[in-house]
Design a protein around this nucleic acid. Sequence first.
DNA 1: TCAATCCGTATC
DNA 2: ATACGGATTGAC
Length: 672
Amino acid sequence: MTGLAAEPTAMPVARVAVDVPLPHLDRLFDYLVPPPMAHDAVPGCRVRVRFAGRRVAGYLVERASASDHDGNLAPLDRVVSPEAVLTPEIAGLARAVADRYGGTLADVLRLAIPPRRAAAEAAETALAAKAARAPVPPGGAGTAAGDQWAEYRAGAAFLGALAEGRAPRAVWSALPGPQWPAQIAGAVAAAARSGRGAVVVVPDARDLNLVHTEIAAAIGAEAVVSLSAELGATERYRRWLAVLHGQVRVVAGTRSAMFAPVAGLGLVVLWDDGDDLHAEPRAPYPHARDVLLLRAHRCGAAVLVGGFAQTAECAQLLATGWARPLAAERRTVRRHAPLISTAEQDTALARDPAARMARMPRLALRTAREALAAGPVLFQVPRTGYLAAVACRRCGARRTCQTCGGPVAQAGRDEPLACRWCGSAAEGGCAEPGCGATGIRALATGARRTAEELSRAFPGVPVRTSAAAHVLAEVPGTPAVVIATPGAEPLTPDGYAAAVLLDGWALLGRASLQASQEALRRWMNAAALVRPGREGGRVVIHLDAAPAAVQALIRWDPALHASRELAERQHLRLPPAVRMAALTGDEEAIRELLAAAALPGGADVLGPVAGPAWHEPDGGAALPVEPVLFLVRVPLPEGTALAIALRSALAERTARKDSRPVRLRLDPAALI
DNA sequence: TCAATCCGTATC
DNA sequence: ATACGGATTGAC
């Protein structure tokens, strides 16, 4: 008990973070606590207050004995609930995240704290009262954790440090295969043994299931909770409250679980940090990697971040010595990895009717045919739909959308041509002057067409497709052709007998400087589902062996590729080697903003170029007719100063009611 | 001299 | 956003 309940009048002032979107109002406002509310108005609770004449929601951040505000204080309108949903740790973290990204506390809190569900709150509060009498013992049960890490050079040291309550930080190069969820569970169990909690963040629901199952097996099902957006709002809030109340101290979840209010946090885990699902699409667009590292740094927790592939960001953590590598010896890696070979498009396709029909290298087909005797074979296809890009049959010009310029595609065999970006129908023929022909030819095939072709190449073999809207979590271990887009690969009990990575050039050739790293990540994630080479596991990639990403795949050396990637980013002065702010919107407004902002020394303004350079998740309704993009680049230590300078310049704009659109985003991955 | 209106600015 | 204060305008 605090002295608050006993002496309510001692702290008559409530300092409130109001939930308004304007950056110049991003600070605490003082209110008087009416005596009847004194007991419920605890730090962290939700309140409603009168603010500029209307009622707004807010969080009571702290109680104080007096106010600095000269002028009358308004009373709190209402304490919505005495539940202290904003813990001091999350309040501090949210402030730091807002500062890092040039956003507002209110925006971050909207990401961090789920909307209230009164019913769930009532039920969970009653439960908490009961649990207080019989606290859940810290995770104990479970198998002898630790052996999952025996194959990693520093594995035992990492687990030992965790179990002793220390805070080791590791960049993890996971061995290919299905062991990684059990390894995460082993680390979580070690942290739990030291009496601490853990937060585990994975990209999607499939990975969450795997990890949750393993953690439950290691520390007991009652000691871990899974949080994801797929839960209903009520169930999500119920589980979140169980975490807040300290009934459960291990959370596994997708992106938004990074803010889960775990008591006594001792470990943060981030799996596959290169997956773009870890980038929050809502303002201020924080990335789970940044948030978790910041969080661990602030509360002295251990860090385990990694995956099969490695990002330039992780390479930088290693280069600066902030984290240590957690990897296996090369011979161990070789023992787990499938045998990987490359196959260029054969010139003599005509000699093999099946290869011609499936338009793929004979080596790929032969490998698949042989492997099908031993189990399922995975085909990774970078695109969904039937034809992902088409060209005019007569003049050869690529068909693009008449409305927005996006790529024209065909979703299914007999479906009409439509734009992949805006969805408008691509009626009529070729738009090239003087052409107008309606005939098309395929430029890039999608998963559905590949499925069609493969079922002809392998008559009698079941063909399953897993893509966008139809993701299969798992397929049986019996022979089958499994076609999947990157990230949608189903699991299979004993691993795939082989994988064929098609259209590698499509992944490598994307107009992003991250293309190489992202291609390698997708290939490794698929190849990791294949049996080890000594058990016959084979991977064929449809590319020549020259590109660095292909070399890294063949040698299963993600760390070398990531450190080269980092060196290149350093050379080009791109994140994570520098901090970059992207401003999109009205050109004049941005020029004025940049002139007014107190940019830190060494700031480097680039632009304008035509923007927006990435797709806005909200459809870009507020964008002007001709948006432009400016970039501001600063050395890493000036990152927060840059974000704060730009935010105050934005704040002055909104205070002046300048309505011209300007949007700020820090280190946008899509730009790199 | 006072009220109605406009504009700028703070919002506790 | 709304609300308030100070300045401005217009009529008596």
